[in-house]
Design a protein around this nucleic acid. Structure first.
Length: 425
RNA sequence: GGAGAGUUACCGAAGUGGUCGUAACGGGGCUGACUCGAAAUCAGUUUGCCGGGCUUUCUCGGCACAAGAGUUCGAAUCUCUUACUCUCCGCCA
């Protein structure tokens, strides 16, 4: 959500930005919202004038009543009554226009960073940098479910029976590995100065509406029947939700938080859950990072955040690359974003394991997240990034650490969380 | 889940239809005085959002007393809905 004052003063920049994102159908909205904004401010000015008159006269009525001047009081009441109808109409108009303006402002995309490559969709995303050799073992790498089954580590049949497609039972060492990775990720981020959080796993509709668009909500969120609660799709929802309508002291910034949560997603829409395995599922767990900082610091934090993910994967010998989202693939709220992708020796390509985003002040404007500064209050910048999200991440882990006999090497960093074992078989 | 009490500024808290919203009173913070310095004391100051004018700190107005709706010329105050907090009871890892 961008500042309407900015849009008012720079309609051409906003339009060019829409073109850069290949959303030309939204171009007319810019002039439309300028028109509505003008109308809104005009009727607001008039309504506020009427209110100030009413307040003044009402005070006089009080004074008349106190002095027992009944006739004067009645005359003043009639005066207010005369403007009541116009004020009522203007108030309704104000509310209506405000809602219309907000609705449009919510779909006008955030101004992207000049460094963002221009492109139509995800096929035009740009590789930034590779980290680690693209490892190809001298034997065939089985499908990840087969690797897990051979280690007696997964039961998808039972999960389909109890819960349906898109769920899993992890067992034995694979389940332990799953927990070990999350525990390691937690400590990894704590060591880098982040504060560990376990947030609510359900949030109210008012928070859901704040943190995502209606279509995202329809496609992602599970609703609890008979309650005003939704299962979170990522801990970012509850972590950013806690800052709604708050003012943070400048001295308390930056807020660098790392949160654990299970994530629940309907995965309705383009992809759906067709694939066998644990790549796209209704339930997974994730260690996340959230940063709330001053505007001038957000690009530095953006670079630190994706670097954290890269370092984390490299510490487990998994080759990764960073892939920058092009303008057309960038969500409307984001200024800049990149995916961290892990190397799959089986498919001999990279696949997404995390996503790092700088939302600028757009999320903060939408949610009222402000900073108390020496010269007044201003909007914060917000960022988020994945540390790790198993079980999808296990695909990369197992494929890259597989031995020919089907056993799995445990990288040094993870051994303390795996009972000291160097290998699982 | 049942019964009762509550939600006002940075904190505590007064206000129960008008001259009571920067909002009594107490505390905290900040500024200044006293002091070699500190403490104590004294004085001043301390909400946020929106719109207009002026555009460097300026100024006028509107809105906000948990959130939303209603009654009224006028609502912190009366009515309804929702959320949360506390006390007691019940249930529970």
């Amino acid at each position: 959500m961008i500042d309407i004052k900015f849009l008012r003063n720079n309609p051409d920049i906003v339009k060019q930005n829409i073109k850069n994102k290949f959303q030309d159908e939204k171009l007319p909205l810019v002039d439309e919202v300028i028109e509505l904004d003008k109308e809104y401010r005009d009727s607001k000015t008039r309504a506020e004038y009427l209110r100030s008159q009413r307040n003044k006269i009402s005070k006089q009525i009080g004074a008349f009543m106190a002095q027992g001047k009944k006739d004067e009081a009645e005359a003043a009441k009639a005066e207010v009554g005369a403007m009541a109808k116009e004020l009522e109409e203007l108030s309704a108009k104000e509310v209506d226009l405000e809602a219309k303006i907000r609705k449009i402002m919510l779909v006008i995309p955030n101004i992207i960073d000049p460094s963002v490559p221009i492109g139509k969709d995800d096929s035009e995303n740009v590789e930034i940098e590779k980290f680690g050799e693209q490892y190809i073992p001298p034997f065939e790498v089985p499908y990840h479910v087969d690797i897990m089954e051979k280690l007696n580590g997964i039961d998808l049949d039972a999960a389909r029976k109890t819960s349906g497609n898109g769920f899993y039972y992890l067992k034995g060492n694979i389940a332990r590995l799953h927990s070990a990775i999350l525990s390691y990720a937690r400590d990894f981020m704590i060591d880098r100065g982040f504060t560990y959080f376990i947030p609510p796993f359900m949030i109210r509709s008012s928070v859901v509406e704040g943190v995502m668009s209606f279509s995202e909500m329809e496609n992602m969120m599970y609703k609890i029947e008979g309650e005003d609660l939704y299962l979170i799709g990522t801990s970012e929802h509850s972590m950013i939700g806690r800052f709604i309508d708050t003012i943070i002291d400048e001295k308390d910034l930056p807020q660098t938080l790392t949160s654990y949560s299970p994530c629940f997603r309907k995965e309705v829409g383009a992809h759906g859950i067709e694939e066998r395995g644990v790549y796209r599922i209704h339930q997974f767990e994730k260690q996340e990072m959230i940063v709330v900082c001053k505007p001038e610091d957000s690009m530095d934090w953006y670079n630190k955040l994706w670097q954290n993910s890269v370092d984390f994967f490299r510490s487990m010998d998994i080759p990764v690359r960073t892939l920058e989202c092009c303008s057309g693939d960038l969500a409307d709220l984001k200024v800049k974003s990149c995916d961290v992708e892990a190397w799959s020796p089986r498919q001999q390509k990279y696949f997404e394991v995390g996503s790092c985003s700088n939302l600028g002040d757009a999320q903060a404007r939408r949610l009222g997240i402000r900073i108390r500064g020496e010269n007044g209050n201003y909007l914060a910048h917000t960022l988020n990034n994945t540390v790790v999200a198993p079980p999808r991440m296990l695909i990369a882990f197992l494929e890259n650490n597989l031995n020919e006999d089907g056993s799995i090497r445990i990288p040094k960093a993870l051994r303390p969380y795996m009972g000291g074992n160097e290998v699982i078989r």
